[in-house]
Design a protein around this nucleic acid. Structure first.
Lengths: 109, 109
DNA sequence: CTTGCCGCTACTTATTTAGTAGCAACTTCA
DNA sequence: TGAAGTTGCTACTAAATAAGTAGCGGCAAG
């Protein structure tokens, strides 16, 4: 399993267009969630695992490697934490929270 | 395979918090891509399949059902097309494109 | 020197996704 | 009328990914 990166063909697109690589990376289970949990605070491997509903350590480990390769987070003495790039992604994703609330309203009606 | 919806437990979170349902839905392969392709234009089943690098029809079909259940798109005589809700999601995701370009610059350096 | 938490790895099973074939309904052009 | 093409799928099998469980070696505290 290779890490999807911009500038090279990725799962679901051979164009190498950056946004496609982003879709591929973020479209893998847990990746958005992990970034979300690391927003505002660094977390240890086991803490992160707990917050992600006890996700299996094998998957968490491969995810952490992929997200590191993608330069969205790194491991520090304080635990795993977002890079500046990772933080900037989370900022872009923030509007999603508001959208989800609106979505809830419309779906449940 | 049930469709992740806000207001109910979803894969990866039993809280029912809207954003978690969004992560679950968007974190499934092809979902973001499908919405992306339908942005600005309706597409037929087979057109959509072609644009998504020949994704398998079985998966496309289940995705279309899930996204319909989630009220993000629907089927019309012109083909599949986004609902207003789906369009509003795409607007929120637009900043991602710019981010991805920045990402490319940093990853490839 | 034991107890406990840490970051993992190894392994098996279950779930998801891919891939291929093909059918029934409809249109097109003869 | 009828043969040929297109469309929206469904059915089925195979491959890839994720879940689940066990446990190891390192380290720190008591």
């Amino acid at each position: 399993m290779t890490t999807p990166l911009p500038n090279q063909p990725v799962r679901g697109s051979d164009s190498g267009i950056p946004i496609m690589a982003a879709f591929d990376l973020l479209g893998r289970k847990w990746n958005m969630r992990i970034l979300w949990e690391l927003n505002q605070q660094a977390l240890s491997f086991r803490n992160l695992q707990q917050r992600c509903n006890g996700m299996s350590p094998s998957v968490l480990n491969t995810r952490l490697k992929q997200l590191s390769d993608a330069k969205l987070l790194n491991s520090t003495p304080q635990g795993y934490q977002l890079t500046a790039l990772g933080e900037s992604l989370m900022e872009k994703l923030n509007p999603l929270r508001e959208w989800a609330v609106e979505w809830e309203a419309q779906v449940s009606s």
